[in-house]
Simulated scan of single mutants.
Amino acid sequence: MDRRHFAVDVRLGGTGAAGGTIRSPLLRRGLAERVRDPLDGRRNVLKATGEGARLHRRPVTRTARMNRVFLAPLDQDERETLLGLIARVTDAAEDLRR
C-alpha cells in the first residue's frame, strides 16, 4: 500500500507479516474489504469500504487546509519545490528502513 495514502482502491502487494499488519486491522474494523483484482483475477486486493473512504477524507481535507495556511507565503513554484524536496527526503528515509 502506498504509505502516504489509504486510497479508495488500496492495492496491497505484500503477503508477509508486514502486509498482514496493515491489512488485518483495516479488515477487522470494516474499513476495507477483499475483492478480486480486476487486472489480475488470480489475486485479491483491498478496497476501501464507504466508511474507510470517509475516514480517509477527513485527514486529507485537514492536510490540504493546513498546507494552504502554512504554505501561503510561498508562490506556486516554491510550494511545488518544497513539497517535492520533502517527498524525496521521505522516500529516502523509507528506503533506509527497508
Rank of each mutant, 00 (worst) to 15 (best):
K47G: 03
R65P: 00
L71K: 02
A53F: 13
R54M: 14
E78K: 08
L46R: 02
G52P: 03
A48C: 10
R62I: 07
A53Q: 11
E51C: 06
A72V: 03
V60L: 13
F70N: 03
R68A: 11
R62F: 08
A53D: 14
R54K: 14
T49C: 12
P59A: 04
D75S: 05
L46V: 02
G50Q: 09
R58H: 12
V60K: 08
R65D: 11
P59N: 06
R54Y: 13
F70V: 09
G52E: 04
D77H: 06
V60W: 06
P73K: 06
H56I: 02
A48H: 10
Q76D: 13
L71Y: 00
V69L: 06
L46F: 08
R57Y: 06
T49R: 11
A53E: 14
G52A: 07
R54F: 13
L55N: 05
E78M: 06
R54V: 11
T61D: 15
G52S: 10
G52R: 00
L55V: 15
P73Y: 04
R57H: 10
G52H: 03
R65V: 02
T49G: 10
G50T: 12
L74N: 05
D77A: 15
A53W: 07
N67C: 09
D77E: 12
P73M: 02
M66V: 11
A48Q: 07
A72Y: 10
F70K: 07
L74G: 04
T61S: 14
A48R: 05
K47M: 15
A48D: 07
E51K: 15
R68Y: 01
A64F: 01
T61K: 05
L74F: 13
R65M: 05
T61V: 09
F70S: 03
M66K: 08
R57D: 13
L74E: 02
Q76E: 13
T49S: 14
G50M: 05
L71T: 00
R57Q: 11
R54L: 15
L46N: 01
V69Q: 09
E78F: 00
R68P: 00
K47L: 09
H56N: 14
E78S: 13
F70R: 12
P73C: 01
R58P: 02
T61M: 08
A53G: 08
V69T: 10
A64T: 06
E51S: 15
T61F: 07
Q76L: 08
P59C: 03
G52N: 07
N67T: 04
E51W: 09
T49K: 08
E51G: 10
F70P: 00
A72M: 07
L74P: 02
P73E: 02
P73Q: 04
H56K: 10
L71C: 01
H56T: 14
N67R: 15
T63M: 11
V60E: 15
R62C: 04
E78T: 05
R62T: 04
M66P: 00
L74I: 03
L74S: 03
A53K: 08
A48M: 09
D77T: 06
T61W: 06
P59S: 05
R62K: 11
R68V: 01
R65F: 03
N67E: 11
P59D: 05
R58G: 05
A48G: 14
T61N: 10
A64Y: 01
M66I: 12
A64V: 08
R65S: 09
Q76F: 02
E78C: 03
G52K: 01
K47V: 15
Q76P: 00
H56V: 05
G52W: 00
G50Y: 04
F70W: 10
M66T: 09
R65Q: 11
T49N: 13
E51V: 15
